[in-house]
Design a protein around this nucleic acid. Structure first.
Lengths: 193, 193
DNA sequence: GTCTATAGAAAGATAGAC
DNA sequence: GTCTATCTTTCTATAGAC
């Protein structure tokens, strides 16, 4: 076992990825530190060499999501403006997104975060702001204030559609919900409203 | 302590109301049976005379929400059609709703439910269907299939707006989010899109 | 039906060896 | 840095008195 900085960094990243996958699937309280460490190929005792507490891990896992999510970067490669926004809507509100090991934490952890401490709510707010900002930047509605408001509402529908879609027990209903949100979201960003 | 049916029913209702208030605020795993019973003015041991398990309580508390929520009935008294839908949007996407002791569980428990068992996801789905159905019935968009889809998207935005609004740490941002969702929701149900 | 007491399991965090 | 072992707390669920 090498004691190098690189090795520690590698362990840290494995822990963060395992954490986000498990937290997304079961929520903060249904995942133990032992679960995360085993998933990362380590043991309990090593945890506190990397993180101060379970809450600390949770916060860092959420804040690292935009970087961690390799799929997202790959998915949007080279796209700009209208095409970016359209693909973001379709990708976010898709069955494939719901089935990802690491879906967007804005949707998969929204209630979990609301019931947790301030630090965690801060990193959630940061991620939310990042999403709204990128959607806003790439969208092409005319008036800038209206655009900002429109994008907050569209992202709320995206997050809501995925969050509710994950909770519903009927897959057909979930698919209808996703499809409805997709079509209305496109309508809104194309400025026909 | 009377052993009448009425007394049992009274206890049962107190437990259900306490449960929904506490679950809404802290989530399933952060509320103990002891917490619920104390809030209802009883002790641990009495719990199992009313419910089979904590999951059973959670499911019944959610499914009873439409009846329990006296505010909702009062709020909509006498309203129909366009006025009902407009008031539903304004009430749901309001700061006041976020501050209620018992907000709509579709928003306050969405992640909690997604991570829980099938019975619980079933009652959540039932409540969701009730909301979409009433919104759909009272709305006045022309074509019926399009109306159904539109109302699913609008409810997703309502639930998403409230759920995300509860998670954000910045009250001003939450208020902007709620306002954006309100204005876009009105735009959508008034059929100008 | 409601109470007190408790069994039994799980988890967060720490201590100390290597 | 990672391991095993353990302290301590908390919680669900049950047992038995009234």
């Amino acid at each position: 076992m090498p004691l190098t900085k690189e090795h520690k960094q590698k362990s840290r990243e494995k822990i963060l990825i395992s954490a986000l996958a498990l937290f997304s699937k079961r929520g903060f309280d249904r995942v133990s530190i032992n679960d995360v460490m085993q998933h990362a190929g380590l043991t309990r005792g090593a945890f506190y060499a990397h993180f101060e507490s379970k809450e600390d891990l949770y916060a860092q896992a959420i804040s690292n999501w935009p970087e961690q999510s390799g799929i997202v970067k790959e998915y949007f490669k080279g796209l700009r403006g209208k095409e970016f926004v359209a693909k973001a809507i379709n990708g976010y509100l898709s069955r494939n997104h719901l089935n990802q090991a690491i879906p967007c934490p804005l949707a998969s952890l929204v209630t979990d975060v609301a019931n947790n401490n301030e630090k965690i709510r801060e990193v959630y707010t940061d991620v939310y702001n990042k999403l709204v900002t990128v959607m806003n930047k790439e969208s092409t509605l005319s008036e800038s204030k209206k655009n900002d408001d429109m994008m907050m509402a569209v992202t709320a529908m995206m997050v809501g559609g995925v969050a509710v879609g994950r909770a519903l027990v009927d897959p057909d209903l979930t698919d209808r919900l996703l499809e409805s949100c997709r079509s209305v979201a496109h309508l809104l960003v194309e400025g026909e409203a």
